[in-house]
Amino acid sequence: MLTLYGQELRSRLLLGTARYPSPASLEDAVRSSATEVVTVSLRRETAGGKQGGGFFELIRALGVRVLPNTAGCHSVSEAVLTAKMAREVFDTNWIKLEVIGHQDTLQPDVFGLVEAARILSAEGFEVFPYTTDDLVVGEHLVEAGCRVLMPWCAPIGSAKGPQNISALRAMRAHFPDMPLIVDAGIGRPSHATAVMELGFDAVLLNTAVAGAAKPALMASAFARAIDAGRDALEAGMLEPRDFAVPSTPVIGKAVFA
């Protein structure tokens, strides 16, 4: 069972709600993923428009927890205000905190991230920070009040998969009791299995599912891949060896020559 800020979850997949070909395909993907947490955002409403209402109803009907994000925020003040507005709308203290530092890589501004995390934690938010795999930044985020860390494994939407396995392994070792969620960069189910085998607690995905030719089928594939990685971790995996080890016992083997 995964526990995030006291909330117990059976699914270790958190799913984004953007970039699906249609609202129906989003619904199907959420259902077939068996996720219990979806990420959402806030944008300017148009005058007289009711754009947000339809999406809000769709999400409410799915019966899952929402994790609002501060996507697109490039400053601490923007991220903090967006978080407060998200709490007003979605009635949750959970916030996926993004403070973007670079337009091309969407790399987090980790200095602003720590500052915003401290402000929001003090105001009762339960912060899920989108961060890098830097251990020192992770320590500062924990000191700022975060009880979950969400490192990228590659740039958002890049589908490259884990780019620095050693750093992810070090992060797991350095924060043995902190829920760690890989957020961003996963492209294939095998990537998700790989980070789960490393001991990560969950995976947050969006584009890899929404951009698939069949999003619902891909959502299901990811759910199974994440479970497989987790089961493998719990089962205990063999360490690689340099030489062969016969799997068939040699004792009692006939000698013909």
Partner: peptide, 10 residues
């Protein structure tokens, strides 16, 4: 004045 509403997000 900013008036925001729910939107899909990742």
């Amino acid at each position: 004045i900013e008036i925001l509403s729910p939107m899909k997000g990742g």
